[in-house]
């Protein structure tokens, strides 16, 4: 805040919000992708098995989940790549913390780690569709 007259207060808040609250939402994007993938896989299969499972088997649901999984992993991969760029892995010390770059990189690092865990979660959730071949 070098020029307090022009860049403070609620406008500062809004500005910060556009720049960095994006980052706060950003760190939840990968787990949200996992959640959406999960809900679609579970909900889609539940509806499919209840309405069409007996006559048409589960193949369509399994293929859809495969497609969804590729999409989800692709998106998480992209998020992870962007997060690494934000994080810029390098040696840093405690001094950096209180500078904006420190916060910036922290959010990148946290987002990157969450991408990894979310990708694992997506793969786990996709596995039942890989192995289970009926609606029973």
């Amino acid at each position: 805040m070098t020029d307090p007259k022009t860049q403070t207060g609620s406008r500062q808040d809004e500005f910060e919000f556009f720049e960095e609250s994006n980052a706060l939402w950003w760190i939840t994007l990968a787990p949200t992708t996992w959640a959406v993938h999960f809900v679609l896989a579970y909900g889609g299969t539940a509806v499919w098995c209840a309405k069409f499972g007996e006559t048409q088997g589960v193949t369509v649901a399994r293929l859809s989940i495969a497609g969804l999984t590729v999409l989800a992993l692709g998106f998480i991969g992209w998020l992870g790549w962007r997060s690494v760029r934000r994080w810029k892995p390098r040696q840093n010390d405690m001094e950096d913390l209180s500078h904006p770059e420190g916060r910036h990189e922290f959010l990148g690092h946290a987002a990157f780690l969450l991408c990894i865990i979310s990708a694992i979660g997506v793969v786990y959730v996709a596995m039942p569709a890989l192995f289970i071949t009926t609606c029973r």
């Binding site: 999960f38 299969t45 649901a61 694992i120 569709a129 009926t134 609606c135």
Partner: peptide
């Protein structure tokens, strides 16, 4: 009595939560 495949999703997520 839910379909096995549905149980599978929740089983998988239950194992995944162990990691974090």
């Amino acid at each position: 009595g839910l379909p096995n495949i549905s149980l599978g999703f929740f089983s998988a997520a239950s194992e995944a939560v162990v990691i974090p």
